[in-house]
Nucleic acid binder design. Structure first.
Length: 207
DNA sequence: TGCCAGGCCCTCTTTAGGGCCTT
């Protein structure tokens, strides 16, 4: 289990690339303390433009909902206070970290916490899974899921549940009680063929 | 007018290409 708090987050956005002008339209997040969800954050935000019909269908978020939502600046300021200096986690963190950095940049802020990625970890430890999409992994691990995928808070909650199960699986597999955040980050950058060796060595060191 | 993401990771690789993930 993790000793320190970690914020698991998920963005819904107008598209795939903040560098191409895409903006966040919803942020959802849960805070994990010692393996337990202790807080939640969810907010729609008005990106100042209409979103495409594709995004409306993909997320279930429509232009009428966003027209009455607070601005990105307001929501992201609140979210900055929520995450503080916590470490961060997302499924395909490369995506969410780009949007978080872009929205924070508009506020003149920098992201403080370090990102871990549940997708990179899942690719290493669940190599038999049909694929490594969030929804597939939730089914693969038989995690109860009543809600709408592609909504930010639900995806963040599911990512958190998946994360805890991955850590638990690793602890059981290697006979260890705790996997520090720094080790998980290192694991996600380790070639698949060396993952077993890294964890075996760690288990021997802490036993 | 034409183009349009980016990072990871595998392989028929490294002087590259393409699938997987995220919206």
């Amino acid at each position: 289990m993790l000793a320190n708090s970690i914020v698991v987050l998920d963005f819904e956005t107008t598209g795939l690339s903040p560098d191409q002008g895409d903006r966040a339209i919803e942020i959802g997040a849960v805070k994990l303390d010692k393996g337990v969800i202790t807080d939640r954050f969810q907010a729609l935000m008005n990106p100042g433009r209409r979103i495409s019909s594709f995004i409306e269908h993909y997320t279930g978020i429509n232009n009428r909902m966003l027209a009455v939502a607070p601005t990105c600046a307001k929501v992201m300021t609140d979210f900055s206070n929520f995450i503080g200096s916590s470490n961060l986690l997302a499924h395909n963190a490369a995506f969410d970290s780009r949007f978080l950095a872009a929205e924070f940049s508009r506020l003149g802020q920098l992201v403080q916490g370090e990102f871990a990625c549940s997708l990179l970890l899942a690719r290493r430890i669940y190599q038999d899974a049909p694929n490594h999409k969030l929804g597939t992994l939730i089914d693969y691990k038989n995690i109860p899921s009543e809600g709408n995928f592609h909504r930010a808070l639900f995806d963040a909650e599911m990512t958190a549940e998946l994360w805890l199960i991955m850590l638990n699986d690793l602890c059981e597999r290697y006979g260890i009680e705790h996997i520090p955040f720094s080790l998980v980050k290192k694991l996600a950058r380790t070639p698949k063929a060396q993952v077993n060796k890294l964890l075996t060595n760690y288990a021997a060191k802490v036993s």
